[in-house]
Amino acid sequence: MKRSLLIVIVMIILFLGQAQLQKKLARFESPEQETLLYLPSGKYLKPLALGYDQMLADLLWMKTISYFGDHFMTDKEYPWLHHILNLIIDLDPLFDFPYFFGGIILSLEASQVDRANQILERGIEAYPEKWQFPFYIGFNYYYHQKDAEKAAPYIEKASSLPEAPAYLVPLVGGLYAKTNKNETALRFYREAHRNATDALVKEHIQKKINRILSGIDNYDTGNTDTTSD
């Protein structure tokens, strides 16, 4: 009886001891040291996944969410976000969420527009039919970098894809207008007019063309009101 009591006491002491040490050790880990740092590039990670690529991508995806959450609540710096997203894409290119997440969060929240666009380019590669990816690239160029010239071809591409919303068409024209290219805008509108099936849209585009032709909207001088159309 005495003996078993002793054993229980020793067990408790050892258990509490290891718990204390664990507490101390946890303090050594500074938050600066990102565990993500140790992830190799996707080129090496993919063979090492041994066929569990999708599962590994999912686990990294959950890691991404918590990484984002942690930094969003603290320093709002995300130096490793694009790296881990690229890894996920390497492992599971058809997983579409990381493209959306990277394309929007990296530019909007982390101000890493080029990296956001790089991820979106990979999205186009994986899903050439999804209009959102070129659209976001165009948006990033225009909104964050005020570069309508680079944005326009992407938005144009987006507007040509299935399921693209109709409001992209005037947007494209507007963007070309911003780049002071009456000719290009006109060419685009005429093409859109030819492709449009809806009578109302057709009428709308025709009006637009007429305005350019009549000189009311002169893109070469920048005298326009794209927003109203």
Partner: peptide
């Protein structure tokens, strides 16, 4: 359980990935 807390979408995909991987492992 982790799915409930961590992920925004794609729950279905993740549960299928994890299930198949676990059966395999």
């Amino acid at each position: 359980l982790v799915l409930d807390q961590a992920t925004v979408g794609q729950r279905n995909k993740i549960i299928k990935d994890m299930g198949l991987a676990s059966i395999n492992l």
